[in-house]
């Protein structure tokens, strides 16, 4: 589904990513862990076209998307969430999800001039279904900026659901959440996002990683230092050293 070959990203003299090779087969939930500044978010940004990679190739679903702009990549069926949550704050919950949907399929000039979805119409039903899945249907008319944090993260996920993305990239989906909220998020990822989709999850919280991921990849200083089954990877000495060294794993 997603293939990275020798991916490299430099900012001036700083190499944020170097020589990353990664293969994400369809249907997998890949976790990416690593200390702060190890290049996790840079990897996500390079894949989603926020900036072009400095070297290497990225392929998604058989197409070489190296150097493509974000909106073209998104239209191939890729959706993401953001570490610091990006929503359209002055739009309602419903409008946020609807916007994600029609942005993907504008449908020509006439499509652009089509009015808001009518109650009971096809668009409305799709948006409502996505909101239902993440448990936000009741707050559909609330402005996104007024939502509490866990609900905002779920709204970002609803956005990925409504466009039926093939690949979903989650950047710290449980960031800033309590253990109970984290467990709830793990359930949403397992039961709602994962079925029928490929996922890449960046996370610090071991509770979430071990709870949902089928494979794990560890980054340190922009390099991949380990990859494999979660239990096996977390057991390795070098991983424990760079990542878990001395810190309580459960809330690092």
């Amino acid at each position: 589904m997603l293939t990275l070959q020798g991916l490299e990203k430099r900012f001036g003299a700083l190499a944020a990513l170097s020589g990353i090779d990664l293969e994400v087969p369809a249907g997998e939930i890949l976790g990416i862990i690593g200390p702060n500044g190890s290049g996790k978010t840079t990897l996500l940004n390079a894949v989603t076209g926020v900036y072009p990679p400095s070297a290497g190739r990225i392929a998604f679903g058989g197409a070489d998307i190296t150097g493509w702009k974000g909106h073209r990549i998104a239209r191939l069926g890729l959706a993401r969430t953001f570490q610091n949550i990006r929503l359209f704050p002055t739009m309602t919950v419903f409008q946020n999800v609807w916007a994600a949907q029609h942005a993907r399929t504008p449908g020509g000039l006439l499509g652009l001039l089509r009015s808001r979805p009518r109650p009971g119409g096809g668009d409305t039903r799709r948006v409502e279904a996505a909101l239902e899945q993440v448990g936000l249907l009741a707050s559909r008319e609330v402005l996104a900026r007024h939502l509490p944090l866990p609900a905002r993260r779920r709204l970002e996920i609803a956005r990925a659901l409504v466009v039926d993305a093939r690949l979903v990239l989650l950047d710290e989906p449980a960031g800033g959440m309590t253990p109970a909220e984290t467990a709830d998020m793990a359930r949403v990822i397992r039961e709602v996002v994962a079925p029928g989709r490929t996922c890449v999850v960046i996370e610090h919280k071991m509770a979430l990683i071990t709870g949902v991921c089928t494979r794990l990849c560890v980054l340190d200083f922009g390099r991949k230092i380990a990859e494999g089954h979660p239990d096996e990877v977390l057991d390795r000495a070098e991983v424990r050293e760079v990542y878990l060294g001395g810190v309580d794993a459960s809330d690092a």
Partner: peptide, 15 residues
């Protein structure tokens, strides 16, 4: 309005 609110997010959603 999407562009005005957050153009990077709009780009990420396919615009």
């Amino acid at each position: 309005r999407m562009l005005g609110s957050d153009d990077l997010l709009a780009d990420m959603q396919g615009l």
